[in-house]
Design a protein around this nucleic acid. Structure first.
Lengths: 258, 258
DNA sequence: GATCCCCTTCCGTCGAGCGGAAGTTCCAGC
DNA sequence: GCTGGAACTTCCGCTCGACGGAAGGGGATC
């Protein structure tokens, strides 16, 4: 009987994380061997660790032969101050906005080179929407992304300009053109896209700003997704701006939201 | 030096979980020594494990000398099929309902002896609301709780009847009286409470049902929270029922939602 | 400068995690 | 019903990485 040795890999923690990491929104349920393969963990070890995670507090759950993220992780996740205050403050404003314009409303923050969607309100959809709460989309192909990128430090913009992936035929992948667009966004105060991320969807987005120190800081972006041929695209921006200002004002009251 | 021995406690997994478990909605940020004390883990070990969790993938985060649940856990939590389908299906209906009645709308499922709130839509609040998404409240003191309890198996009702805690002066803590109320709920098809969980708030709730096998199964409860002296409390029930039926019909289309 | 509190680093010991081998279950193909 | 294969579960001896007390900062309060 072998048992090669103790942890030749890394710490137990990192190992457990690599197991959990294989779950994503396209495959929320996986079998033991799938998890083992994807995470590169030996089958036996995977088995033992998952059993531990399942028994000891429902971090994962067995459901008819497959594993899924458990309720405990859901609970814990909800406690993450990740934008918790931001979301709680923004939600009522977004609700009002949605009632007015009837389209899908998003709130996103920048995380590295992605727009991280932290809140979304959508009724019955007229437009195909790819984003979900928790999903990340590239900064250069979405309305909220462009707003966030326009406000990002120079080094982030640089890196983003070097990784422009084509999402649809209409995605802007020319660094020069994107830079000009970002300048426009800064000047006008809002961003627009049309079928740059997914066909059949256009968007308008504005920054959510908070006064801090001397100047204002962009802490999030607020956007709407609409059918691409709507005439009133430009009219949406002022409405969004009012809402964004409301959120910003409310955020300024909280001690800290980052 | 010392180093008593290897893990004299339990598995690393359980140990890590006990660290994460000390976070709750009232204290989402804790210092090292607080976590150590609350979890009963030696200070040094706590320190090492937290460092690992923080370095190796942002499961926790250091923020000015305190620890908080990290973004990674938020991500993972969102993948939990815990009611994911239920929430996604119910959300648009709840939104419509909220637009109509303008009060806070809740969706809850029963988890053991608690009502677990899985979704909530609230605008600017006229009423103090204690529940949040992810929070658990006792079954006997809330509208959604009574609906869920009325539909629960006999042994659950029994256990619930033996643990009636008083939340406000108006909480029903007499087993007999609660049983009569549950019978009313079953007969009428909706539940009402008035200041039984928190002063200044009343609620109306109805079951969300799905046909399965021969009969119907209550899979969730839909409720509204309103000021206690509103006259139209009884009028709300039919509106809720329409929404609940819509959700139930949509749920029936999905292969599985548990 | 002394006391207290909280955090961080160090390091010798030893038992808990490791994972190959073997056993079990389940199903498809013949 | 038998056989081959794939997926899951149990077993268990070896070893090395986790354990945590001691000691060393750092900052506040008296």
């Amino acid at each position: 009987m072998a048992g090669r040795s103790a942890a030749p890999g890394r710490s137990v923690t990192s190992r457990v994380l690599s197991l959990l990491d294989v779950f994503d929104s396209t495959s929320p349920r996986l079998s033991l061997s799938e998890i083992s393969e994807r995470s590169g963990t030996p089958l036996t070890t995977t088995h033992r660790l998952l059993a531990e995670l399942a028994d000891w507090g429902a971090l994962v759950r067995r459901a008819d032969g497959r594993y899924e993220i458990g309720r405990k992780l859901w609970d814990l996740g909800l406690l993450a101050p990740v934008q918790m205050e931001l979301r709680q403050i923004a939600a009522p404003f977004m609700l009002d906005l949605h009632t007015t314009i009837r389209d899908t409303v998003h709130l996103a923050v920048r995380e590295e080179l992605s727009a991280l969607y932290v809140e979304r309100i959508s009724g019955r959809e007229s437009v195909p929407i790819v984003s979900q709460v928790g999903s990340r989309l590239p900064l250069h192909a979405t309305g909220v992304g462009k707003v966030l990128l326009a406000a990002a430090p120079a080094d982030v913009v640089d890196r983003a300009l070097h990784s422009l992936t084509r999402q649809t035929p209409r995605t802007v992948v020319e660094p020069g053109r994107l830079q000009r667009e970002l300048a426009d966004v800064r000047r006008r105060g809002y961003a627009r896209t049309s079928e740059e991320m997914s066909p059949g969807a256009a968007s308008v987005a504005v920054p959510v700003q908070v006064e801090r120190g001397g100047g204002t800081v962009v802490v999030a972006a607020l956007g709407v997704v609409v059918p691409p041929h709507r005439r009133d695209l430009a009219r949406l921006a002022p409405v969004l701006e009012v809402t964004a200002r409301g959120i910003g004002r409310e955020l300024a009251r909280t001690r800290e939201f980052r």
